[in-house]
Computed example of a mutant assay.
Amino acid sequence: LLWEHFSREVGRRPTLMAGHSLGEYTALAACGFFSFEDGMRIVRKRGSFMEEACPSGKGGMVALIDPVMELVEMEVQRKGALLAIANRNAPDQVVVSGEMEALKELISGLRGRGYRRAIFLNVSGPFHSPYMKPAAERLEEELRKIEPKRMEIPVVFNVDAEPFRDGEEVFEKLKRQLYSPVQWERSMRRMAEEGIELFIELGPKNVLSNLARKVLPHVETMNAERLVDVERIKEALK
């Protein structure tokens, strides 16, 4: 609804689109790759498959603020299959996903030397990690039932931070997204390489706008949570 209102009222076509994790499906629906109804059906299936892939409470995710990446990556690798980098959001923020006890050991082992602050996320499982591979296989079956359409606007994908417009390769990217890190910092930098200087965030709060400014301090950002915010953006773009 917010995207439709924005498109109608602002009347300016974005050059590129992107969505963080689940938001990637919103971007794909907005750019016309699949219908709103197909998007809702796939998102529901995706959530169910992810919940079933790992019992509740067994795994989780933790955000590390101001991480020393060399130390974090070394400790994650040392844990093997138990941990994985889940989100590379900004220079000062990375998210680690995995088995809960291994996450606690990571936080304890790096305390005072590997990060400034650790925040356990309110999620039910170790998303964007190899634990989600069974869910990814099931998701692919559902994705293949969709008849894809050519995107009206290219989307920069989470798994490789590359803009893409059409083709069934999108299904493979969405499958991999479930068990691969969200390359959000790289995505922002890739969009800047394409000449993007204004980032407009549609949706609740302004988390992604804040991340964009951390990655690219020189860019301008705007965000719209409500329909009335679109009017503010429309006036600013005149």
Rank of each mutant, 00 (worst) to 15 (best):
L2K: 11
F6V: 09
R8N: 03
V10N: 10
R13E: 14
R13T: 15
P14T: 05
P14W: 06
L16D: 10
L22C: 05
G23F: 11
T26M: 04
A27Q: 06
F34M: 14
E37W: 08
G39H: 02
M40L: 14
I42G: 02
G47S: 10
E51K: 12
E51I: 01
C54M: 10
P55L: 05
P55T: 08
M61N: 07
A63I: 07
A63R: 06
A63W: 00
D66M: 05
D66N: 08
D66E: 13
L71D: 11
M74C: 07
M74G: 12
M74N: 14
E75W: 07
E75L: 06
Q77P: 06
K79C: 08
K79V: 02
G80R: 10
A81Y: 11
L82Y: 02
I85W: 00
A86Y: 08
N87K: 09
N87L: 06
R88P: 00
P91I: 08
Q93N: 09
V94L: 14
V96W: 12
G98K: 00
M100H: 10
M100V: 10
E101Q: 15
L103W: 11
K104Y: 12
K104W: 10
E105P: 03
L106Y: 01
S108R: 15
G109E: 12
G112I: 04
R113E: 06
R116C: 04
N122Q: 14
N122T: 12
N122C: 05
S124H: 09
G125H: 08
G125F: 01
P126L: 07
F127V: 00
S129R: 03
S129Q: 03
S129D: 04
Y131M: 07
A135C: 02
E137F: 02
E140M: 14
E141C: 01
K145A: 05
K145F: 02
K145E: 11
E147T: 13
K149F: 13
K149L: 08
R150P: 05
M151L: 15
I153T: 12
P154A: 07
V156E: 04
F157K: 14
F157I: 12
N158Q: 05
N158C: 05
E162A: 14
D166R: 09
E168R: 11
E168D: 15
E169W: 01
V170Q: 00
F171W: 13
K173C: 03
K175A: 02
K175H: 13
Y179D: 00
V182Q: 04
V182N: 00
W184N: 05
M188P: 03
R190Y: 07
R190C: 09
E193L: 05
E193V: 03
E194H: 13
I196T: 09
E201I: 04
G203S: 00
S209E: 07
N210I: 11
N210R: 15
N210Y: 01
A212D: 03
A212Q: 01
V215D: 06
P217Y: 00
P217W: 09
V219M: 10
M222K: 13
A224M: 11
A224I: 13
V230M: 00
R232C: 04
R232P: 05
R232A: 15
I233G: 09
L237K: 04
L237W: 02
K238I: 09
